[in-house]
Design a protein around this nucleic acid. Structure first.
Ligand SMILES: [Mn+2]
Ligand SMILES: [Mn+2]
Ligand SMILES: [Mn+2]
Ligand SMILES: [Mn+2]
Lengths: 222, 222
DNA sequence: TATTTTATTTAGATTTGTCTAAAATTTTAA
DNA sequence: TTAAAATTTTAGACAAATCTAAATAAAATA
């Protein structure tokens, strides 16, 4: 239906729009996300515009059409299902799944997606805690907050996911045994640099900077 | 490392050489296998020759180098492992696996191949009975013969695989409940058209033309 | 408001993989 | 052994995706 590159552009635009909370996306942002030149982006958005996958207003950026969103959401769905497979079935660690899923997401077969979804037990979240769109493109919502915003001492926090997916960040958390499904107690807030100290079930104390704590999503029990 | 198209050419050349029992492969054969023009093949073999993946003698065809064979065998390995996954884990029927495996085989990740192999229990044959090369490129050999060559009446035949993979042929066999792992008794040979009659365990009688019987591989217990 | 900085588009070029048509070479057959 | 048929190569073109450099427009700032 669409080329791998077209799909990647649509996904990039979708992600930028999400992050911004604003559907209009400019050329530079796409170029940065895709790691290409602005000139290449201009070429591509012209093509995508002709195919009615986005609205393009010269010099003022683009926004995805209904069709464009559908493609992006389907790609996101496939990406995240594959990440679950790699992690849960094949035993990849959560810092290893993304790059491979980036390739697998482009395999074209509706039957494959359906069967994979079923095989995995219709998971609602990927190994990083991101929601997996269903076949209609709708997500499961859940309440979550950045760990940095937990301000009640002795709170029990349940790790739900992370904001960033870069391998070095995930490896760092892995070493600290911080990953979705784990529970910790917040035992200290350091005011002057806003860092936070956790206690693991095994009794280990873990010190996290504000920057790190801000990139971890938790469910907080009181 | 190599493009998807380069990989497909190398695989095509490998397969033709195998079928021929002769390593030198001509342009026309490659063009037919790939569904492209001879001119395109000439372009591509020049590139593959520059990359030392094959030896090319103008007007007299090509033969794969050691490196070229390695790429082809690795691709074959991935293709067949994915077919096992699709069939055994996801429940695809054997006529549905090939086209999807044709895409999955190009995903680049040695870790993925290793983990998949392990997850599947290091299978030695794919759903069509074709041997899966191991990480070093060597196959498991087994004794098999075309069903058309079984000439002893009341032989028990055990289905091992098929010669052709086209969907319509596999669907036809599926309807007759002929697939790897099944056992039949040969109850009749018709001389004038060399067709053959089988008896299934369920008591069904199945009539097969010589053409069909020639494309089915079996293990024969006397 | 005028100027500088930043973003965007255009122009022209390159690589990959493909095609058709024409020319060259090899193979087959008379 | 020559003529016809088949195969292979070359030439020239095209679409997709990219680049750099130059031109243009918008946004920021003095
Ligand atoms: Mn990912
Ligand atoms: Mn991708
Ligand atoms: Mn196959
Ligand atoms: Mn392929």
């Amino acid at each position: 239906m669409f080329t791998e590159t077209e799909e990647n552009y649509l996904k990039a635009i979708y992600k930028i729009a999400q992050k911004q909370g604003e559907s209009s996306v400019n050329t530079k942002a796409i170029a940065d996300e895709m790691g290409t030149s602005s000139a290449s982006v201009t070429d591509m958005i012209k093509r995508l515009s002709e195919k009615k996958l986005l609205q393009y207003e010269k010099y003022y950026g683009v926004s995805l059409s209904k069709d464009g969103q559908k493609v992006a959401l389907n790609l996101l769905r496939k990406h995240r299902l594959w990440e679950v497979f790699l992690h849960d079935s094949l035993g990849f660690s959560w810092d290893e799944v993304h790059d491979v899923a980036e390739q697998l997401e482009h395999v074209q077969s509706d039957l494959l997606v359906d069967k994979l979804d079923q095989f995995l037990g219709f998971p609602k979240f990927d190994p990083h805690g991101d929601p997996i769109p269903n076949a209609n493109g709708s997500f499961t919502f859940r309440n979550q907050m950045p760990l940095s915003q937990v301000r009640i001492k002795n709170s029990k926090v349940y790790i739900l996911g992370v904001r960033q997916h870069d391998s070095s960040f995930l490896k760092y958390l892995n070493d600290l045994k911080i990953r979705p499904g784990q529970t910790f107690e917040v035992i200290q807030f350091i005011e002057y640099d806003k860092s936070i100290k956790l206690l693991s079930k095994e009794g280990d104390q873990i010190m996290l900077s504000e920057k790190i704590a801000d990139a971890i999503f938790v469910k907080s029990n009181n």
